[in-house]
């Protein structure tokens, strides 16, 4: 059965899938809105977990958390299944498509042949929507793409059953029950409250704005601790996490600013708009960081713009974001 799926491009895959699925079911939530209500913004630098020998840096919450929180705050129910059998997983998918229900699923980027080669790493938490089947090909709405696309059944099986860290295990999900009445304002404030808490209040030094400061202090010592080659590799990874597809620029900061911008007119709070401006300014500074870090990486010498100077930019951003999210947290608490 052919479903008319309202595909729209988004910066980040998880928001995009939620936004597109909601639009299919007749609810209009823009990507920034989903990101904000789902409290997607975060920062963590986890030196003891490594991927490919490089410490993990992340500008967002855990994969899956945005959808979960969004569903909770809107009050909708989501059916989510994972499989141990490939045949069962694909058969269930076909049944859902037959019923005319588009299905969100977790895949590994490496096996999605329609994506540009340069981006195909083993990243197991990419979300796509499958909304139809044509012969041996599945019709795919991948939120990072401008248009819908197709993928062969073999590739889709590989992508759904990729191995390694956080295996997708054929996980697929679809909303089953929608609320009759949605309290938009409450959902927005709760989303902001959680984001404010995550960024400033968690008493662990590697999370939130504290994590940014910690990364700055570590980054400063990379050249002498690790040598030029490794230091640049590490730095390159931080920039990649900040600027690659899916971040909307400046490690999700612009995306969140877009949310605050939109939210301010919905809840009728002017201060949110001002804070959005401030977050934009702080995001600009993060882009400066990426710009200079890119130059350091390009020249392959660690002394072009010293790591200490890069660390200072990062510290400045941490300071600014700390102020912004403390204020947001307080505002949200006053308004719930």
């Amino acid at each position: 059965m052919q479903i008319d799926f309202p595909h729209r491009q988004s910066a980040h895959c998880e928001n995009g899938v939620v936004s597109n699925l909601m639009r299919f079911h007749g609810y209009h939530y823009s990507e920034p809105m989903v990101f904000g209500i789902g409290s997607g913004i975060f920062f963590s630098y986890i030196p003891f977990i490594r991927m490919g020998g490089i410490p993990v840096t992340s500008y967002r919450t855990l994969p899956g958390a945005i959808f979960k929180r969004f569903a909770k705050r809107i009050g909708m129910k989501v059916e989510s299944k994972s499989y141990s059998s490939e045949q069962k997983a694909m058969a269930d998918l076909d049944v859902m498509l037959e019923k005319g229900v588009p299905v969100g699923m977790l895949t590994s980027v490496y096996y999605l042949t329609y994506l540009p080669d340069a981006y195909r790493f083993h990243f197991n938490a990419h979300n796509i929507v499958v909304y139809g089947k044509e012969g041996n090909n599945y019709l795919v709405s991948d939120p990072v793409m401008e248009t819908t696309t197709t993928i062969s059944a073999e590739d889709l099986i590989r992508a759904r059953f990729a191995k390694g860290v956080a295996e997708p295990k054929g996980r697929m999900y679809y909303p089953t029950q929608f609320p009759t009445e949605i309290d938009q304002k409450d959902a927005i404030w709760r989303g902001i409250k959680r984001a404010g808490f995550d960024m400033t209040e968690i008493p662990i030094f590697i999370l939130g704005t504290k994590g940014m400061k910690y990364l700055a202090s570590r980054l400063q010592k990379w050249p002498e601790r690790l040598g030029d080659r490794k230091a640049i590799q590490y730095l390159g990874n931080v920039v990649r996490m900040q600027e690659e597809i899916g971040t909307g620029g400046a490690g999700f900061r612009f995306l969140y600013a877009a949310f605050l911008d939109e939210a301010s007119s919905i809840v009728g709070n002017k201060e949110l708009y001002d804070l959005s401006k401030e977050l934009t300014a702080s995001g600009d500074r993060l882009r400066d960081f990426a710009y200079y870090a890119g130059r350091v990486c390009k020249s392959r010498k660690t002394d072009v713009l010293s790591f200490a100077e890069l660390a200072d930019i990062l510290r400045e951003c941490a300071e600014r974001e700390d102020k912004i999210f403390r204020r947001l947290h307080q505002l949200a608490k006053d308004n719930i």
Partner: peptide, 19 residues
């Protein structure tokens, strides 16, 4: 705010190429 399409940004291209 609004969404704008981009074909890339130099720093990102550099670090991706490096990887």
């Amino acid at each position: 705010y609004k969404g704008v399409g981009s074909v890339g940004w130099e720093p990102e291209n550099v670090v991706l190429e490096q990887a």
